[in-house]
Simulated assay, not measured.
Amino acid sequence: MGFSGEHGRFSTEVYAGRLRAATAAAAEAGLAGLVITPGYDLRYLLGSRAQTFERLTALVLPSQGAGAGEPTVIVPRMELASLKDSAVLELGLAVRDWVDGDDPYRLVAESLCTTPPIATAVTDSMPALHLLPLAEVFGVVPVLATAVLRTLRMVKDAAEIDALRKAGAAIDRVHERVPEFLVPGRTEADVAADIAEAIVAEGHSEVAFIIVGSGPNGADPHHECSDRKLEAGDVVVVDIGGPYEPGYNSDSTRTYSIGQPDADVAKRYAVLQRAQQAAVAAVRPGVTAGEIDAAAREVLAAEGLAEAFVHRTGHGIGLSVHEEPYIVAGNELPLEEGMAFSVEPGIYFPGQWGARIEDIVIVTADGAMAVNDRPHDLLVVPA
C-alpha cells in the first residue's frame, strides 16, 4: 500500500481503510453519519481534490448498524469530472448526481437512511451556505466532525509517513542550496525567488510559504520577505515548505549567519540549539504535547531567554501545513506512535535579530524520528 503516482494519491486500499475507520468512529460517537465537503478531510478520506462551490459536493458516510445507508458521493452533474482522479470509482462508492432545481440536501438525508432529527457531523471547512440548508433538512444543527476525524488524521499510517519522509528529504535538498543564495547586496525577495524555484525543482508540487528574515526582520516570526538587502553580519532565518505528492507538506527552518557571528549571538544560538534538542529527545508515546513544549522552554528559561520565545513549540503537519496536534503549553493530549509535528523553538530580539530551528518529527514506539537531517548549527556563509 502506498503512493499511486498516476493519480496523485495513495492506493485504493489506503482510502478503504480510512473510510472503515471513520465509519466506526462516527458510530462510536453515536452519530448517524458524517457529511464531508471538499477540503483536507475529503482529500484524506477519498484522495479527492474537488473544490467547494455554491453547488454541494459531499461524501455522505452513514454509521454502521441496522438500516444504515451506503457511503455515497453527492455531486452536481456538471462536476462529475472532479471525481475522476479520486478513489471514488475504484472504491465502488455510490454516486448520486444532481442538476440545478434538485435539492441536494434532501439527497444527503436520504443517503443517511434516517428520519429527522438527524445527529450528524460535518467537516469544519463546510461553508455556511451548505451548513444552514443541511441543518434545516436534518431538523438539528450538525456538530463538527473534528472530534471524530482528529485522531485518524493525527496518527499517520505507513503511507503518510513515507510521504512525509520524502517531503522532508526534498526540503533538506533546498536548504542545502540556500547558502549560495545568501549573498550580501541581494534582497530578501531575491533570495525568496531563488528558493521558490528550488522548492519546485526538488520535487514539490508548489510553494506553500517562504520566510527569509534577515537582521532585524528575523525577529518577526512570521515575516515573509522584503526589499531589505542582506548585509555582512546578518543572522538570517529561512523557514520554507510546500506540498509533495500526494500532497503531504514539508516545513523546515534553519538559521544562517553571513560571516562569523559575534560572541553574544553564538552564545544565545547555542542555547536555542540545546532547547530544540531537548524537545526532540522528550518525544515518545504517552508524553503530553504540553510536556514537549515545556522541555524546550525550560532550557531557554534557565539561560534567561524565556521572554525571547514567543510562540508554541510546534504544530502537526500532513495534508495541511498546520493541523493537530499542537505542541503548546496546556495541551494534555498524550502523544501516540505515528503522530507527526514540528519541533521549532525560536528566540527573537526586536530590532536586532532572531533565530529558529525546526524539524518535522514522527513519534515512534520509543522516541522520535526526524524527517529532516540538515545540520542544526548556526550555518556560516561567506560575507
Rank of each mutant, 00 (worst) to 15 (best):
V287T: 09
A279K: 11
E323H: 15
S320F: 10
I292C: 05
E323M: 15
L305S: 01
L300V: 08
G304P: 05
A294W: 06
T288F: 01
T288R: 13
G286N: 12
L319W: 03
A279V: 02
T313H: 09
R297Q: 14
R312Q: 11
I317H: 13
E303R: 10
E298N: 07
A282I: 07
L300E: 03
G286A: 13
F309Y: 12
A306C: 04
G318S: 03
V283C: 01
T313S: 05
A295R: 01
R284A: 04
A294E: 09
A301N: 10
E307R: 07
A302F: 02
E307D: 07
L319S: 04
E307H: 08
V299K: 00
E303F: 07
A308W: 08
A296D: 01
R297M: 11
G286V: 00
I292P: 01
V310R: 04
E323P: 07
D293S: 14
T313V: 11
R297F: 14
G286H: 01
T313Y: 12
V310N: 00
V299N: 06
H311Y: 14
V310E: 02
E307F: 05
A301V: 13
E298W: 00
S320T: 05
L300C: 04
A294H: 13
A279R: 10
P285E: 11
A306S: 07
V299T: 02
